[in-house]
Write a protein that binds this DNA or RNA. Structure first.
Lengths: 76, 76
DNA sequence: GCCCATTTGTACGTATGTATG
DNA sequence: GCATACATACGTACAAATGGG
């Protein structure tokens, strides 16, 4: 999944992976994606790396977060 | 300058401060602003906080960075 | 061409605050 | 009150690019 030797930055790899899961329907619209802690554990990267990837996708309008609730796939 | 007790997040306060300096002409177009290390020392916040503020201004198109050279004010 | 200082980029860990249920 | 989840903020380390000597 994540290639630690690749020249591509980890946060971009994570963003690409999540973008793919959203577009493939694995993470359907209006549902919560796994929490930051769970993504961190699954992918084997640091929390800040996952957060940076999520920030990108939020700016792109693919994700919406609500503190205390979770991170949700935007309707598309 | 920076109000550590304010409800406003520090990174937003830093971004606002730099935006003000750009708009006032204190940081003129096409010139380099102080380095991250210097801003960190001047403002008394963490490097990550300055970086987050700079990232915002880069996305807004106010700043352009060149690794190894510095951070420059965009022409406006 | 080669070091070296400077500067930005990426990435790790950790702690505390705030919101939700 | 408590567990979960995101937000903010600190410190640190190393890589890569640039420019000067």
């Amino acid at each position: 999944m994540i290639d630690f030797g690749a020249p591509e930055p980890l946060y971009r790899q994570v963003a690409d992976l999540l973008r793919q899961r959203i577009e493939s329907g694995e993470y359907p619209p209006r549902t919560a994606i796994p929490s930051i802690v769970k993504l961190t554990a699954e992918l084997g990267v640091a929390e800040v790396t996952v957060r940076k990837a999520l920030d990108m996708l939020k700016r792109e309008g693919l994700l919406i977060t609500t503190p205390g609730r979770g991170t949700f796939v935007a309707q598309h």
